[in-house]
Amino acid sequence: MKQHLGRQSGVQNVEVSLLDGKVDITPKEDGRIDPAQLLKATYDSGVTVAEMDITARGKIMKEASGGLAFQVAPNQSFACMPNDLSKSSESLSGTPATVTVRGQLFKKPAGKKKAQPASQLQLTILQIQKRE
């Protein structure tokens, strides 16, 4: 799995802990990496992803539907699941301010042994680490 993930586009380094099933992925300097592709690659290597968290710097945007999105690249953004932290950052939408957040992009539904991840990942903001 480590080699398989290491071959994915934008991956600088992969660390796997067999003890607790933790996989740490460091993106390359430009940060151009596709979490959905990594999820698929992980499933393809024969293991089940229980959850995926990211730390990223980006901008809070307002979607046409009225919901919030977190933009990490000009052509890459994740819809934000509404919670207290997303509400508190709503005032930043449409401003040039960047924030560094830690959030959950995927969590396996409870009770299911194996679940294919959704193609459209949604971000649940867990922590706002920095506002710039």
């Binding site: 933790k22 901008k59 690249a73 960047t98």
Partner: peptide, 30 residues
């Protein structure tokens, strides 16, 4: 002029945006 400055700021902040770290917890690893 103000619009141009705002656009430059907006583009600069998007250019700085990036994913810094990804962490997964997986099951079934041998």
């Amino acid at each position: 002029m103000n619009k141009l400055a705002y656009l430059v700021l907006l583009l600069a902040s998007v250019a700085q945006a990036q994913i810094k770290h990804i962490e997964m917890r997986v099951e079934g690893m041998t």
